[in-house]
C-alpha cells in the first residue's frame, strides 16, 4: 500500500510548491489514475511517491510518504527500488544505455541489487514473459521502436519485483502502435493484480484500466472517485482534462437528441 499524507513539495529555487497537501492511497492490487492539465504537479506527485524527490531532486517536502508502512525518507534509494518502480515519458533516457541486449537491460536492476545469478535470470525471463516480449530478448534495446523501448523500461522495473508501479505518462511520446502495445500490457498487468499509480492525458486508456481516478489542478487534488464518475463529470473539461471519447460522443449525441438505447449501446 502506498500512502501520501498531506504531501507538499517545493523544488529548490521555486517560488511556489509544485504540489500542495496531497493525500491519497493506492491499495494493493489497485490501479489509480491521476489526471490534470500540464504543470498541475502530476510528475512531481510521481517523483515524491517513488522517493526520487527529495532524494535525487533537490527540494523541500512536507507531509509523509509511506510505502507498505515505511517512511520513504528513511529508506536508501536501492531499497526503495524494490518497493516502488517508476517509469517516465521518454523511453530512451530510462534505459541504462550500457546494455547490448534487452535481456541484460531488464536484468540491470536485479544485478544492481547483487542478487544471485540464477535469481536474476529467473526474474528477467519472468518480466519478459509478463510483458509478452520474450522475442525481443536478444535485440539491441537502442534499435527498438518507442513502444517496445517503453516496454523494456517497464520490464526493467518489473524485474525488481516492486510492490508498486508508478507510471508518469508512459504513452505520451509514443505513436499509435506503441500506445496500443503499452496499453495492452498495462491492462494485462492491471488484470493480474499489480498496484499501479498512473498519470495520463489519454483518458481512453485510463477508462479501461483504472478503478479510481483523482484530478490534480494547480498542485492540489480537486476531484477523486470511481473512474466512471470522475471522467464523466461535467466539470472535467474546465479542469483541463479531456473526457474519454465514449463520454464525449455520448454527450454530443444526447445533446442532439439521439440519447435512445440502441444508439447508446453502440458506444460500448
Amino acid at each position: 500500500m502506498l500512502v501520501l499524507e498531506a504531501v507538499s513539495y517545493r523544488y529548490a529555487g521555486a517560488e511556489r510548491p509544485a504540489i500542495r497537501q496531497v493525500s491519497l492511497t493506492l491499495d494493493k492490487g489497485e490501479v489509480l489514475g491521476v489526471v490534470g492539465p500540464s504543470e498541475a504537479g502530476k510528475t512531481t506527485l510521481c517523483l515524491v511517491a517513488s522517493g526520487l524527490a527529495p532524494r535525487a531532486i533537490r527540494g523541500a517536502m512536507d507531509g509523509r510518504v509511506l510505502l507498505d508502512g515505511a517512511d520513504t525518507t528513511a529508506l536508501p534509494m536501492h531499497e526503495m527500488a524494490a518497493r516502488a518502480g517508476i517509469c517516465f515519458q521518454h523511453p530512451q533516457t530510462q534505459l541504462s544505455g550500457i546494455c547490448g541486449t534487452v535481456f541484460e537491460e531488464i536484468a540491470f536492476g536485479p544485478m544492481n541489487l547483487g542478487l544471485q545469478r540464477d535469481d536474476v535470470v529467473v526474474r528477467t525471463w519472468d518480466a519478459l514473459d509478463v510483458l509478452g516480449i520474450t522475442a525481443l530478448a536478444e535485440r539491441d534495446p537502442m534499435q527498438l521502436s518507442g513502444g517496445q523501448m517503453q516496454l523494456v523500461a517497464i520490464g526493467g522495473l518489473l524485474a525488481l519485483r516492486p510492490a508498486h508501479l508508478i507510471l508518469d505518462e508512459p504513452t505520451a511520446q509514443l505513436d499509435p502502435g506503441g500506445t496500443r502495445l503499452v496499453g495492452e500490457c498495462l491492462a494485462r498487468l492491471a488484470a493480474g493484480g499489480a498496484s499501479i499509480l498512473i498519470t495520463e492525458q489519454k483518458t481512453d486508456l485510463l477508462e479501461r484500466i483504472c478503478g479510481r481516478v483523482v484530478v490534480l489542478e494547480k498542485g492540489g487534488i480537486v476531484a477523486a472517485g470511481p473512474t466512471d464518475e470522475v471522467l464523466a463529470a461535467a466539470g472535467l473539461a474546465a479542469m483541463g482534462v479531456a473526457a474519454p471519447s465514449r463520454v464525449r460522443v455520448r454527450r454530443a449525441l444526447a445533446g442532439a437528441g439521439f440519447g435512445d438505447g440502441a444508439i447508446m449501446d453502440a458506444l460500448h
Binding site: P76, M77, T93, R117, L160
Partner: peptide
C-alpha cells in the same frame, strides 16, 4: 536535462547501492 533524467532512472533501479553487482 538528459543527465538528470538518466540519473533518476538509474537511481530508481538501485544503481547507487554500495557493494558488488551481480555479473551475468
Amino acid at each position: 536535462a538528459e543527465v538528470e533524467q538518466r540519473t533518476m532512472a538509474l537511481e530508481a533501479r538501485g544503481f547507487t547501492r554500495p557493494g558488488r553487482r551481480t555479473l551475468l
